[in-house]
């Protein structure tokens, strides 16, 4: 996909901090932000900043990647269940020799996501393993 500065810019609230939405009618949480509740259809939704802690719902170690992620290979991707929010998609970073498992505790950090050389750089939220 060709990167557009405008397309990146309009998502910065949910890319740079865990800003999602909550439906005031049915209380469902969403990340990233939505304009209408997917569950009940209400447009009565408000911004909601989720806590930075959660646990791994599922994960994979990527060995073959698209071109713009090739410098990061191998890297971990995961679905993370936020403690007070929904399941979201991201990466797990700074994993040393530790073996990942479902249910492992993680916390959010701010990192570069992709882009090198003349490409636009993109930033976003990734996760680190919580030290015991």
């Amino acid at each position: 996909m060709k990167k557009s500065v405008v397309a990146e810019w309009r998502r910065y609230e949910d890319r740079y901090r865990l800003m999602g939405s909550v439906c005031l009618l049915c209380k469902e949480n969403f990340f990233p932000r939505v304009t209408h509740c997917v569950r009940c259809g209400s447009s009565d939704v408000r911004d909601r900043l989720f806590l930075r802690e959660g646990e791994i719902y599922s994960f994979s170690k990527i060995h073959v990647s698209p071109e713009q992620f090739q410098k990061q290979v191998p890297y971990y991707v995961a679905l993370i269940k936020l403690d007070n929010g929904p399941v979201i998609s991201s990466q797990i970073v700074d994993v040393g020799s530790e073996k990942l498992f479902v249910g492992m505790r993680v916390y959010a950090v701010f990192r570069k996501v992709s882009g090198t050389g003349e490409q636009a750089l993109t930033y976003g939220i990734k996760f680190r393993l919580t030290k015991k």
């Binding site: 994979s60 990527i62 991707v77 998609s89 479902v102 976003g124």
Partner: peptide, 24 residues
Amino acid sequence: AEKEAFYGITFPGLYAMMARRYFY
């Protein structure tokens, strides 16, 4: 594109996460 591909989650990566959860 915005929720998955943006973070470098590949197509095999999506099915891999389904497999990992199924294993669990």
